[in-house]
């Protein structure tokens, strides 16, 4: 809070303590606080802080979980076991998505789209793990646009690179759809250009907002349950219990959203790659 710009090395410690002490109640945004771990707050490269934070820890956990998942399915058996079947379902899913949206040229993007989809999916689902009951804090790094933005810009950069390498300046014809009247070419070009340039933002913000909204909602509802439970039994029956039941439903919904947002991110990247590969 307000101390971020003062010092790069140790800028965001103690945030939690100040807030909890000041407000003395559940802050739904507090779960998104980034804290350096293992005393790494002063790590930096070229003056930029690269503290190993709880966010980075969950990126590592997602990566390791994904590595274990995929490695378990890499037995290369002719008749697959359950695990191999599960992994092959995901690769087949990504392969099918690229085949449907990009066509035969899309095969070479399977590693990237698979990494993207699975990384986001694992991040989203791992962030929903109810390990709070064990005293641990799950952190959903996809609820930070500084993380989703990296993925979005990466996808957008690939689209730009592929588009310009493959079609040179012809790539600009993407902004003038077929059949545009001559008088409309210039305005349409700018409209299309803006809609094209908005893509990385919509891509990154969509995931960040969806994940954050779900977690805030769960946090707010859980604060209702806890506060009404602490107040009296009557209030708990009126507000706490329905909130708890609603939370169960929202949890299921959040699992769905976790999958859907990963899918949407991967799917939109496929659609954009199709523009780059095949123009219109």
């Amino acid at each position: 809070m307000g101390q971020g710009g003062q010092e790069r090395a140790l800028p965001f410690t103690g945030d939690r303590d100040i807030r909890v002490a000041a407000e003395a109640k559940v802050d739904p945004m507090h779960q998104f606080t980034i804290e350096p771990l293992f005393g790494s707050g002063h790590w930096s490269i070229a003056g930029y802080n690269i503290a190993f934070t709880n966010s980075a820890l969950w990126m590592a956990i997602a990566t390791v979980a994904l590595l274990i998942f995929v490695a378990g399915g890499s037995k290369r058996q002719l008749v697959p076991g359950r695990w191999q079947m599960a992994v092959e379902t995901f690769t087949g899913f990504v392969d099918g998505m690229l085949a449907a949206n990009v066509g035969p040229n899309g095969k070479k993007y399977v590693p990237y789209i698979f990494s993207l989809f699975m990384f986001i999916l694992f991040a989203n689902v791992l962030g929903l793990l109810p390990i709070g009951v064990l005293g641990l804090h799950a952190f959903t790094f996809t609820s930070h646009f500084s993380a989703t933005g990296v993925l979005a810009i990466m996808s957008f950069a690939i689209v730009l690179i592929v588009g310009f390498v493959k079609h040179k300046l012809h790539f600009f014809s993407l902004f003038v759809p077929h059949g545009t009247p001559a008088a409309m070419v210039v305005p349409i070009f700018f409209v299309e250009l803006v809609s094209f340039l908005v893509r990385p933002f919509s891509l990154g913000l969509r995931l960040f907002v969806a994940m954050m909204a779900g977690h805030v909602l769960l946090e707010v509802l859980s604060s209702f349950v806890i506060d009404s439970g602490n107040a009296n039994i009557g209030l708990f029956a009126i507000a706490g219990l329905p909130s708890f039941i609603l939370m169960i439903g929202i949890c299921a919904l959040e699992l769905l959203v976790a999958g859907i947002q990963a899918y949407v991110f991967a799917l939109l990247t496929c659609v954009y790659l199709n523009d780059a590969e095949n123009l219109h």
């Binding site: 971020g4 800028p11 965001f12 606080t33 690269i50 934070t53 930070h144």
Partner: peptide, 9 residues
Amino acid sequence: QLAATFSSQ
């Protein structure tokens, strides 16, 4: 926390 954490993120 953006200014403080973007590089690490």
